[in-house]
Design a protein around this nucleic acid. Sequence first.
DNA 1: CAGGTTTTTTACCATTTGGTAAAGTTACGA
DNA 2: TCGTAACTTTACCAAATGGTAAAAAACCTG
Lengths: 204, 204
Amino acid sequence: MTSPARKPSRIQTENRQRIRDAALGLFATYGFRGTTLDQIAEACGMHKPNLIYYFESKEAIHIDLLNMLMEEWLSPLNAMDPDGEPLEEMLGYIRRKMEMSRLYPRESRLFANEIVQGAPRMLPHLESTLKPLFNRQIGIITRWMDAGKLARMHPAHLIFSIWAVTQHYADFEAQIAVLLPGDDKRARGADEFVEMMFRKVLAP
Amino acid sequence: MTSPARKPSRIQTENRQRIRDAALGLFATYGFRGTTLDQIAEACGMHKPNLIYYFESKEAIHIDLLNMLMEEWLSPLNAMDPDGEPLEEMLGYIRRKMEMSRLYPRESRLFANEIVQGAPRMLPHLESTLKPLFNRQIGIITRWMDAGKLARMHPAHLIFSIWAVTQHYADFEAQIAVLLPGDDKRARGADEFVEMMFRKVLAP
DNA sequence: CAGGTTTTTTACCATTTGGTAAAGTTACGA
DNA sequence: TCGTAACTTTACCAAATGGTAAAAAACCTG
């Protein structure tokens, strides 16, 4: 066992990252219970006990991923500027969410899996990390509405709808691929649609 | 084993339904791999081999549920009337989807689980059942837009956004419950918001 | 390059899990 | 009410799975 509070070696850092990368794809696709240590091991070219050498259990890998995810995932929310031009700030946020959905579908699906299943390992994190950020954002948006810069509406549901629409493209990709097989222009069409949609909704 | 093509007895019908009901809740919450036959058995007060007496395998239960789900799930789409008033037809559809999200969250989550994981058992069904219906609907909406009754936009993405927003309330309930704890008016607020939103988007 | 430390590999193990065999029990039509 | 078919229960089993022990190999530092 690695002694506690010891700075990780190069190999540690590297291999932990390899494990995370393999596990992310598998957990995102098959869920926590649906993924086996053997699968993860094979996906990153290691042996099962080696995983346990780097993470003390399968659950530890999952938790580690969820923790990392939370930070990245919330960065677009943090990037909103209360002093910016309201409509442009909102559309910028929406664009960044669409971009994340396209660039990091595994992360999106990992998150979706966790929440759909009742957030068994993430509820405290939602409460302590997401909620304050969410509430701050609600405040900013409310002030923008008060100032007449955005149409008046329920700000929480507005954010939910943004999350719903943007993440849908990653989480339900399997369905979209069946219904809209024209692969090439799909992302463009989605971006344009979503921007148009929220422009209409948000315009004061 | 029951002889093939034989009409089911009263007990058959009853118990198969009990099993479906228990399995639906568990599959929706824990996913296919995350649910065990023992859990299902306990949830419906039966013994494991008894489940296998009624369904030939765990997978058979899952498939049975997905098949039943598909029909119910698509009924609101079918209920749209090509000769109705376009905006009201669309809003009616959206209202029915919100209602289903509220009344049948287990079904919504079962579906979400399946799609997020790449629809391993449902892809053919999506292709053969959902896709034609979807395309027919695209046609109807396109004609409405051509007639100037709805704002012009990409009809497929419009439908995706409706699905995304309405199902979000069932699928991500765990998250919403954390962020919007005021339990009583939540459904009302959601309904009003969604209606307002799509009214703006769809108005010609 | 020697010697200890870190990392990897092989061989296991206990539990869980999907499923079966077969005996026992209940329901139901003749 | 009797016999048979439908249903339930008990006792299992083989494979899969999360995890451990400990030897072997690779790595690093003085």
